[in-house]
């Protein structure tokens, strides 16, 4: 445990000096500041933040995670030639990347809100926006680590990462709509709930929109989810599924990492 903690600390130390993490924080600062200037409607601000966060967080997390693991291969070899367990190193690298990414999202969004729109801080949807940010980062870093551990080809790994992001963020809802269109004579609602659990981005969207009462505006899957579950059950199911989405790739990746040749 002590070793794990040390590895995490050194990772945070290293990443916090990287220019990219600074850009990432500044991006949220500007975005939130801009949104507050444009609108007085608090739920609109949260909704816009959510929409941007649902595109940007997965993209940045998955790319950053893949590149990070590939670029630090020799460093990983250096650490693994010390008396350190592979599982511990994998977890250390993972948490050492997730924590700074999440913190930079939190700090970037919170600072303008604290100064300019203080009463929004006590809104429950904002809490859920942060939970969403936490989950999106954990899930997509976890997936990126799995991709980068699975194959050693950097180009292929990056390609897979971008494809995974595109699939979950853009293509998935499109494919669902296509399916609904093709099978419109059949009752599809239950199947759709199943399909939206299979997509972490949809799940996160549902989590916040259930709190905002605008589910119908947020894609078909959101609307179905709200229709079938009352808010509490829906929230419970989506949090459970998001947790599974974080842990399952992490466990598979860790197992791959333990058996990998360096």
């Amino acid at each position: 445990m002590k070793i794990l903690f040390k590895i995490i600390l050194y990772q945070i130390h290293d990443i916090s000096r990287s220019r990219w993490i600074l850009f990432y924080t500044v991006f949220y600062l500007i975005l939130t500041y801009g949104l507050i200037q444009f609108s007085n409607d608090q739920s609109k601000i949260i909704l816009s933040l959510l929409n941007v966060a649902l595109m940007i967080i997965p993209l940045v997390s998955i790319i950053f995670g893949t590149v990070y693991l590939y670029n630090n291969k020799d460093y990983i070899i250096l650490i693994l030639s010390q008396p350190i367990k592979r599982n511990i190193l994998y977890l250390g690298l993972y948490l050492g990347l997730v924590i700074p990414l999440v913190l930079s999202f939190f700090i970037g969004t919170l600072i303008p809100l604290v100064f300019l729109s203080r009463d929004i801080l006590f809104q429950i949807p904002l809490l859920f926006l942060f939970i969403t940010g936490l989950f999106q980062t954990s899930i997509f870093v976890s997936v990126s680590f799995l991709i980068a551990t699975w194959n050693d080809n950097k180009i292929l790994g990056l390609g897979l990462s971008i494809f995974a992001w595109l699939l979950f963020s853009v293509l998935y809802d499109g494919l669902l709509l296509l399916m609904i269109n093709v099978f419109q004579n059949y009752p599809l609602e239950k199947a759709l709930i199943g399909f939206s659990i299979l997509n972490p981005v949809d799940l996160a969207r549902i989590l916040v929109t259930l709190k905002l009462d605008v589910a119908a505006l947020m894609g078909y899957t959101g609307a179905v989810f709200q229709k079938f579950f009352n808010t509490n059950l829906g929230t419970g199911i989506s949090i459970f599924s998001l947790t599974a989405w974080t842990i399952i790739p992490l466990i598979i990746g860790k197992a791959k990492f333990s058996r990998k040749d360096f």
Binding site: D14, D74, I77, P83
Partner: peptide, 24 residues
Amino acid sequence: FTYREKIGYMPQIASFPENLTVEE
């Protein structure tokens, strides 16, 4: 993994976290 306490290894290519100093 504990046996590696007995080993000092100098790999062919040296690569470290870029943003840390030598001392760190």
